[in-house]
C-alpha cells in the first residue's frame, strides 16, 4: 500500500477555469424538476425558437404564431427549446483496494468527481456525490449552483476507504436511494471477486445514463514485482503465491487485458459508456480530451 506524502488539491484554479466552459451532456432525454441552464432536446419555453407545429385543441394560446395565422389562415404553434436541469450522480468506490497507487486511486476518483461535479454545479445541475459503501438510508446532499463547490469538495475530501462491500450491493443501495433519472458516473477499479455484471445490470435497469470510469493504478497495469512472493489481498486477506517470471507477467498482462476487454464489451452491449483510466493520466487531460470524446462533456 502506498500512501501519498502530500495530498494534492482536488481542483486547481486552472482546471476550474477550464471546467467552467464545459457542460455535462446526457445521451438520454430526462425531465428535470427545475429548469436548468441546459438546452434540452425537449421543446418548451425559452427564448430560443426551435420549430412550428399545427395547433391542436388544448394548446397554450400564448404560443400561437399570429403572424403566421394572418398569412396562411392556419393556426401554428411556435415551439421553443426548453432549458432544464440535470441529475448528475458521481458514485465512488471507496473500497480498500482504491487506496493504492501514488496518488491513490481514491484520490484520483475524488479529483474526477470534483471536476465533473463542478461542471454540473456551473450549469445549475443537481449534483450528488455518493459512495458504494453508503448504507441504504444514508442520503448524500444534493448540490446545485457553483456556490456549493466548497461543500461538495468538503464532502469529497472527507471520503475515506471504507468497509469492503460487494459492488453489486453498493449499486443496489444506490439505486434504491435514488430513483431519479440522470447521469451516473461510476468511478471504480472493478476489483470485486463477485464480478461487476450484476451491478451494471442494476444500473441499466435504472435507466440512468451510466458512465463507468475504470481506474487502474500503474501497480496494477505493470506490476513492478520480482522474486518469489506471497501476494495478500488488502480487502479479504486472500493470498496468492507466485514466482515472478517473465512468462507469468506476460500471462498477467493477458489476463488483465481480457478482464478489461470483458468489462468494455459488457458495457458496450448495454449502452454503458466504459472508459479505462490509468491513474498516471492527469485528471485535466482525462476530462478535457477523453471524457469529451466519450460524449460525457461538451
Amino acid at each position: 500500500m502506498t500512501t501519498p506524502k502530500a495530498t494534492p488539491p482536488l481542483l486547481t484554479p486552472e482546471l476550474l477555469a477550464q471546467l467552467e466552459r464545459m457542460e455535462l451532456v446526457s445521451r438520454k432525454v430526462f425531465r428535470g424538476r427545475m429548469k436548468g441552464e441546459r438546452r434540452s432536446p425537449r421543446k418548451g419555453q425559452s427564448v430560443e425558437f426551435a420549430d412550428f407545429r399545427s395547433y391542436v385543441a388544448g394548446d397554450d394560446l400564448r404560443f400561437i404564431d399570429w403572424n403566421m395565422y394572418a398569412r396562411l389562415e392556419k393556426l401554428f404553434l411556435k415551439l421553443f427549446l426548453e432549458e432544464e436541469d440535470l441529475h448528475f450522480y458521481a458514485l465512488l468506490d471507496t473500497s480498500a483496494s482504491m487506496d493504492f497507487g501514488d496518488p491513490t486511486k481514491l484520490h484520483y476518483a475524488r479529483q474526477l468527481a470534483a471536476a465533473l461535479g463542478f461542471i454540473g454545479l456551473c450549469r445549475a445541475d443537481r449534483v450528488r456525490i455518493e459512495t458504494l459503501d453508503q448504507s441504504l438510508h444514508q442520503h448524500a446532499p444534493v448540490y446545485r449552483g457553483r456556490h456549493n463547490l466548497g461543500r461538495m469538495l468538503g464532502q469529497l475530501e472527507a471520503l475515506q476507504p471504507g468497509a469492503p462491500l460487494p459492488l453489486a450491493q453498493g449499486v443496489r443501495n444506490f439505486c434504491l436511494r435514488n430513483s431519479g433519472k440522470g447521469i451516473l458516473v461510476l468511478i471504480t477499479d472493478l476489483m470485486d471477486k463477485s464480478g461487476y455484471e450484476t451491478a451494471f445490470r442494476l444500473l441499466v435497469a435504472q435507466q440512468l445514463d451510466v458512465y463507468v470510469l475504470h481506474l487502474l493504478s500503474p501497480e496494477e497495469l505493470e506490476p513492478p514485482i520480482q522474486g518469489d512472493l506471497k501476494l495478500v489481498d488488502c480487502e479479504d486477506r486472500d493470498m496468492a503465491e507466485i514466482s515472478v517470471s517473465r512468462p507469468l507477467l506476460e500471462r498477467y498482462q493477458r489476463t488483465l487485458a481480457a478482464f478489461v476487454q470483458g468489462a468494455r464489451d459488457f458495457c458496450t452491449r448495454r449502452g454503458i459508456a466504459y472508459q479505462l483510466v490509468d491513474t498516471r493520466l492527469p485528471v485535466e487531460q482525462l476530462v478535457r480530451s477523453y471524457l469529451r470524446r466519450r460524449g460525457l462533456i461538451q
Partner: peptide, 22 residues
Amino acid sequence: KLRRQPLEVPSTYLWHRTIEDL
C-alpha cells in the same frame, strides 16, 4: 530462499485468474 515474501496488493483477483490454469 523459497520462503516467499508477503506483499500486499489491491486485489489478488487478477493474479488468481492468471495462475489458476497453471
